[in-house]
């Protein structure tokens, strides 16, 4: 059985009228099958309101399915008795770092999670050290979070989740409020956790450039998964993505434009280096 396994997952937001009757139903997730293996790096794309955040909130049982099933690490998330196991398996990081930090000192903030789980004091400090080091924030352990930059705060928030030793981290637009360097810092930290610590990652983002490192990309629209594949396969379909209100990385778009102008380039070029390489080869063959 896969690490995360969803079958015909449905979630409906219900709007109630004053008498308590159901006024309208909005199906935000509509029959999604989801298969994630341990150690995968999955990116989820989709326009605002496509259902990606709703889906993500199911992974750690903040929401439970209205229909279908979801198993995380073999546990059915809909069963009340599994809720703490599920939440310990999957940690979440949200968009705004300021809403996620509660401690007055960085190391205390990171220690809050394991303390709540009843981890012995000595081990809490070990976990604080290892998780701050894993996101490159160890030297700020005595700092006050409100003196940090956005990217640094977001990395502290990630360390807070890492300290709980989750097998999986779900990040819902963790870089939306950050400047370019902050964005890079956060993505680098996430990739390191995935590659070095083998933490399973689900990343939701509107920045197409952040997706190119993923093993697999899911595209959502109207609550359904409408495309899935490697970044290269997904970003080869420039026009189709635009139809879903999405985009491709600027480099991919440039390569696509050059191809339309008659240059024999391959589809799905993702990085500046790849494009430079391909163009140089083209030139030497001319």
């Amino acid at each position: 059985m896969g690490f995360i396994k969803g079958r015909k997952l449905v979630y409906e937001y219900k709007k109630y009228n004053e008498e308590g009757g159901i006024e309208s139903v909005n199906r935000a997730v509509d029959g999604v099958d989801l298969d994630v293996e341990r150690g995968d790096f999955i990116a989820i794309l989709g326009h605002n309101g496509s259902g990606k955040s709703t889906l993500a909130k199911h992974i750690n049982a903040l929401l439970v399915p209205s229909g279908g099933t979801l198993y995380v690490n073999g546990k059915d998330t809909a069963k009340e008795e599994n809720i703490w196991d599920v939440r310990q398996t999957a940690g979440m990081v949200f968009q705004n770092p300021d809403n996620q930090i509660i401690g007055t000192v960085v190391e205390e903030d990171v220690g809050f999670g394991p303390e709540n789980m009843g981890v012995p004091t000595e081990e809490i400090w070990e976990r604080v050290e290892e998780s701050l080091k894993s996101v490159g924030m160890w030297k700020y352990r005595k700092a006050s979070p409100n003196r940090l930059s956005g990217g640094q705060k977001q990395r502290v928030a990630i360390a807070g989740v890492v300290a709980m030793h989750p097998k999986c981290i779900v990040l819902d637009e963790p870089t939306a409020m950050l400047d370019p360097v902050g964005r890079k810092e956060v993505i680098r930290a996430v990739r390191a956790l995935n590659m070095v610590e083998d933490v399973t990652v689900l990343l939701i983002t509107h920045y197409m450039e952040e997706v190119i490192y993923a093993d697999k990309v899911l595209v959502m629209d109207g609550g359904k998964v409408v495309m899935q594949g490697t970044p290269c396969e997904i970003f080869s379909q420039v026009e189709k993505l635009k139809g879903y209100r999405l985009d491709v990385p600027q480099v991919t778009l440039l390569a696509h434009e050059l191809k339309k102008s008659g240059l024999p380039l391959e589809d799905g070029i993702l990085t500046a280096e790849e494009l430079v390489e391909a163009l140089c080869q083209l030139r030497s063959n001319m």
């Binding site: 370019p180 360097v181 600027q250 163009l279």
Partner: peptide
Amino acid sequence: GLGAPQTVYVLRGLAEKGF
């Protein structure tokens, strides 16, 4: 803490390779 659009890096990369 900033950078440039990706296209700038492509063009600079090409120039460095003698393009």
